[in-house]
Design a protein around this nucleic acid. Structure first.
Lengths: 340, 340
DNA sequence: TTGTAAGCGTTATCAG
DNA sequence: CTGATAACGCTTACAA
């Protein structure tokens, strides 16, 4: 555990000089001293103590990735493969820029604030659904916050979002174009102004344009879990008043499809299915799943991009970036003539 | 940002007393002072500065979860849903015990050591494949290390493993029992003493017991990726000298199955498939995937269990825990009479 | 070009 | 029961 003091002692200079060399303020030090210091750093294997740095400067180089702890399921938070790819992307970019990533779930805003202060966190990413309360609390701190998949706007916060509305619209319109008139909408619980709500709006708009009625009894909400999807599929198999399902997550879609199939329904012959996300699972189901595509890695990169710019004081023109979505046609939707 | 000093000032006591109260050394402080200090802590919203603590004590409360950065793919490290569940489980348990989780990929052992010293990390988890070099380096440090899915044994390291050998054996024997004689073994690259190698040994043993020859040309290795699986499936579809495939990961198995099906092969009628892990994807494929089951959450909990015991100095009788595996029969394996 | 010294928030030692 | 004070490793005015 070599320290700056050790280096200074060995080379025969003061701590200041060593510190200066480390930080590349070489203009103030003679070339010879620099190389001797660098040698010593090398041979002693000196590495800065981040805690000490963090204490004296007001930057900790720690970035938090915050997840809301869903009370029900214990460790469920990274279950979504999409989320994983996203975190991987963040870690990678952060690291390249000299930052460290702390993964943290929080139960309430007190939890959050404590964490923030405990480590003097430089910035935070939020992914997923949080209560508004969180953001109100957070807006009091002058710390960069990047919100992923959230429609909350606050002064010190940046949003990385998706064309959710468009995604919902595209999926639904496509089904309608294929002759479907009675379309189930399956999703996690719909929170006002959340991503799902946007997708639902897109769904409604597509119906409206086609002069189809919006039916409350076509909306199904549940936690996103394979098992829930399968159960829902089985339940739906008993209804005979619909021909298509739009699920706002591929996992859910795949689950529903499996449930339907297990109950003797054929996809897409009896029921057409469309998902959302385009995770690699889509290529593995039979039939392969038609879905709305989004790019998780890019999402992560853009999120970090925001963060880095803010941390380095680069001016940001636009506080929001919306990733495009697109329809990926595979084999789970069938054209029908709409007689139901 | 209230500090201990602030509290001390307001209550009219010294820092020492405040610190003592915070740490519950209440025996040394009057009841009245205690409650006044606690009140002040409450109203000022005091939260300890971990950097300062870390600097003075030699515990940082930071636990690293280390992933080896596969040079090829940029942010691939948490892509595996299994791995995600595992990390979620770790974060949860760690948090309950007052620790913080830093996620970090490393490129080489220098990276690792730097990270270690940067934060004075209290302990580390390793998941996945690392070069032996890493562990040699690491064994010089007196820091608890928990290895997941690794067969490396070192003095200060603990292993959380799986019955990999048994898994490979069970899968293969089951196929043989169903009449299969020519069984492809598909896996990621086989590293001596790695988990895959163990599974391969189980495969060989099952063959041996059935007096079936081991054929080098039945072994396929590639990175685990859905696309690779699909490609392999298509390639395999051109061979006619086998009736079953054992893939050492469900993702791979599902990919191969899709590739086979896309090439006109029927599963399980033409080819039987068996996977490994039992991720929820298994229930979503058609046919559903027969596989070897393991419990990711439990794995995470046991890993943290080791860590906590070591950190708290609880004596550990056994430095290794091996989780059981079991065969889960679904619909991707067919009984044949073995004429090929 | 280099050195001195104060201070970041906390804990620990020792004295009162 | 309580309080000074030093120390952890580092940065940064300011001085030389």
């Amino acid at each position: 555990m070599a320290t700056i003091k050790d280096i200074a002692q060995i080379v025969g200079v003061s701590c200041t000089t060593v510190s200066n060399v480390i930080h590349g303020k070489s203009g103030r030090v003679s070339a010879e001293t620099i190389s001797r210091i660098n040698d010593a750093i090398e041979t002693l294997g000196y590495v800065p103590n981040m805690s000490a740095r963090s204490l004296v400067s007001n930057s900790s180089k720690v970035i938090g990735v915050i997840n809301h702890l869903v009370p029900s399921s214990s460790g469920s938070f990274v279950e979504d493969p999409f989320h994983s790819a996203f975190i991987g992307s963040i870690e990678h970019t952060l690291r390249k820029n000299g930052y460290y990533l702390m993964l943290r779930t929080v139960e309430d805003s007190n939890d959050l604030i404590s964490f923030l202060r405990n480590w003097n966190v430089d910035g935070m990413f939020f992914t997923g659904i949080f209560k508004d309360e969180f953001f109100e609390t957070l807006s009091k701190f002058d710390i960069p916050v990047v919100l992923v998949d959230s429609y909350i706007k606050q002064s010190n916060m940046y949003n990385v979002g998706l064309e959710d509305y468009k995604g919902g619209y595209l999926a639904t319109r496509y089904l309608i174009e294929q002759g479907h008139k009675n379309i189930i909408f399956a999703s996690p619980f719909i929170k006002p102004n959340g991503v799902v709500d946007e997708r639902l709006k897109g769904y409604k708009q597509a119906l409206l344009e086609a002069s189809l009625p919006f039916r409350e009894d076509f909306i199904y909400q549940q936690e996103i879990h394979v098992e829930n999807g399968i159960d829902l599929g089985k339940k739906l198999a008993k209804r005979n008043d619909f021909t298509a399902v739009f699920a706002t997550a591929d996992i859910l879609a795949a689950g529903i499809m499996a449930g339907l199939q297990q109950s003797g329904k054929k996809v897409p012959d009896d029921i057409s299915m469309i998902g959302f996300d385009d995770i690699n699972l889509c290529q593995l189901t039979t039939p392969s799943l038609t879905t709305i595509h989004q790019d998780a890695t890019l999402k992560g990169e853009l999120a970090v991009d925001f963060m880095m710019k803010r941390l380095e004081g680069v001016p940001i023109k636009n506080k929001e970036v919306i990733l495009p979505v697109s329809l990926v046609k595979r084999n789970s939707v069938k054209k029908i003539n709409g007689q139901i």
